[in-house]
Design a protein around this nucleic acid. Structure first.
Lengths: 195, 195
DNA sequence: TAGCAAACGGAACAAAGTTCCCCTTGGTCG
DNA sequence: CGACCAAGGGGAACTTTGTTCCGTTTGCTA
């Protein structure tokens, strides 16, 4: 159990140099992810942070944990945007469409994140689980609202939809002719109740 | 170049042991792919075929070439099914939907193939290119027919759609709750012209 | 049957994640 | 103020996997 969740409060249990290095690692990782993508070698991140690889693993048991830590607050923003959109959009379906756009934009701008999200390479369950735990409930609420309003069919689960949209984002950053947002939009359109 | 160094002679002739090994490799690869997925280690395939790894690389310059060779005839079948469906379906849109189903079924039953298809790891461009070269024209024809019949919007390119559908298939074999076919169907439904 | 180029096997090399272990050091206690 | 020691750090080493290299074997032909 790590106390990484105590934002703002100084963790007495951690030595000063440890906290400093953890901070440096998060910064370095963010920079390297932007420059070389989420799949950048661990050694590159260690080098950029000026620490040894062992130090990375001391703070983040696996690569995936580092990725989660780097993007945690952006995922949080996305999650929080759900209810807000529901309140401010003309219809639940519109809110859903906009929220999915947010999600797609987030994934696409993080080179390779979508690909790694669904990867079943050992260690990435953490990453997968975190995203899903945080975002699926939000998506469920949007879907339920739209279904309750009779706008969409109600036989598609949030988890399935999120995975589908996530998959659509894979490789979207490599090919300018591939518009993940549009395809995701098609998916949401296809959700509409056929009357 | 086909085979180097055959001055003047129609060197169609491969040595008998070479042909035998190539055959054994294709069989072994097919078996291993079914058992362990497309991402199975090259060494496993070599072992199963009873040859050294060097022999694999003699026949197939890269892993991707082996994969292409193993699935070539199935891709061929899929490609040929396109025009047939167009002729036998009530509408072009129905033909498109059915053809996409075929494509999805093909991908999903090959563990990990979809994932590897979009992977940009060195060497897989071959695989990507082969699939696209063969199937995109077929998809284009179906899309054009449906667009000409006024059934769908005409601003989505076959390449984009195929990539989207391919992406939707990623990981579909790992999770029984994830129905790639249904999601792909949603995508095709979303293509319908909104009137 | 001898000779040779084609084919083979598998050791060796190159990335990449992860683990291990010995050394350094921050913070506390005498 | 200095000694102590566990937390922390560094990076070599281990593992896995694709790919290359090269000495050896072997099918074919003359």
């Amino acid at each position: 159990m790590d106390d990484g969740g105590n934002a703002g409060r100084p963790a007495r249990s951690q030595r000063a140099d440890a906290r400093r290095n953890k901070e440096a690692l998060l910064d370095a990782a963010a920079a390297v992810f932007v420059a070389s993508g989420v799949e950048a070698p661990v050694r590159d991140i260690a080098a950029k942070a000026g620490v040894g690889v062992g130090t990375i693993y001391r703070h983040f048991p696996t690569r995936a944990d580092l990725i989660v830590a780097v993007y945690r607050h952006q995922v949080e923003s996305c999650a929080e945007a759900g209810p807000a959109l529901l309140a401010s959009s003309p219809t639940p379906h519109a809110a859903l469409a906009r929220w999915i756009d947010l999600f797609v934009d987030f994934l696409v701008t993080k080179h390779g994140l979508a690909a790694v999200l669904q990867s079943d390479s050992a260690g990435f369950e953490t990453l997968h689980a975190y995203f899903l735990d945080r975002l699926v409930p939000v998506c469920t609420r949007l879907l339920d609202a739209a279904a309750a309003a009779g706008e969409i069919r109600s036989d598609v689960a949030a988890l399935e939809l999120m995975r589908g949209v996530g998959n659509l984002c894979i490789g979207a950053d490599k090919d300018p002719d591939y518009d993940a947002r549009r395809l995701a939009g098609l998916l949401i359109t296809g959700l509409r109740r056929t009357e």
